Simulated assay, not measured.
Amino acid sequence: MNKDSETRYGTVTRLFHWGMAFLIGWQLLKVFDRIDDGEHWVGQTLVPWHVSIGSLLLLLVLLRIGWAMNQKHNRPAQDPAVAFLVKAGHGLLYAAMLLMPVTGILTMLGNGYGWKVFGIQLAAKGDEIPWMASLGSLHSPIAWTLLVLIVGHIGMALLHHFARKDDVLQRML
């Protein structure tokens, strides 16, 4: 079942969801880079991939948005009483997932570092561009906002599963 249905999310949607969840979790490990100047396993092993994984996430979120728009009429039905809140919450998650890599790229370019993805130089090192660096400075606050949204998303999924005992979580598993 590749496409979504009224009762369950399809394979493609679930691959986007869980694959991106894994990669975003990896990205959030960047916070450990601030401990002991990154002189530990996480800082030396996972953090160096931060820009490349973030760039991959930008591509994936764009593809995911396109897929979601294509599947919007096939999605599982929402409880009408909370449909607005569900759409608003997901909209904020998508916005944060899109803004994170964009502000990260603005940080790299704005500070003159260039932009290198999986060993491929996409933009050369150059002069600092203050307006880009300024917008890029939103990267960290957006990361904390995304973390709060993720915790809320997980919390609501668990609430549905354990308290409401409905099939909301099962749709994505």
Rank of each mutant, 00 (worst) to 15 (best):
M20H: 07
M20I: 00
A21M: 09
L23F: 03
I24F: 04
L28Y: 15
L29Q: 05
K30P: 04
K30A: 12
F32R: 08
F32Q: 04
D33A: 07
R34K: 10
R34S: 13
I35T: 05
D37Q: 09
G38Y: 08
E39S: 11
H40T: 08
V42P: 15
W49K: 06
S52C: 04
I53F: 10
I53K: 01
I53D: 02
I53W: 05
G54H: 00
G54M: 02
L56M: 07
L56C: 07
L56H: 13
L57D: 07
L58C: 02
L60G: 13
L62F: 15
L63G: 14
L63V: 08
R64K: 10
G66H: 02
A68W: 02
M69H: 08
N70Y: 15
Q71I: 09
H73N: 15
N74K: 15
N74P: 13
P76M: 03
D79S: 03
P80L: 01
A81H: 12
A83P: 05
A88Y: 13
G89E: 01
Y94W: 12
Y94M: 02
A96W: 00
A96Q: 12
M100C: 12
V102F: 05
T103Q: 06
G104P: 11
T107F: 08
G112L: 08
G112S: 13
G112C: 13
G114N: 00
W115M: 02
W115H: 05
K116E: 03
G119F: 03
I120Y: 01
Q121N: 13
A123T: 06
A123K: 11
G126Q: 03
E128P: 09
M132G: 02
M132K: 01
A133P: 11
L135G: 06
S137G: 06
L138D: 01
H139Y: 06
S140E: 09
P141S: 04
I142E: 01
W144M: 10
L146Y: 11
V151C: 00
V151E: 02
H153E: 00
G155V: 08
A157Q: 10
A157P: 15
L158G: 06
L159Y: 15
F162K: 11
F162Y: 13
A163I: 15
D166H: 07
D167C: 11
V168T: 14
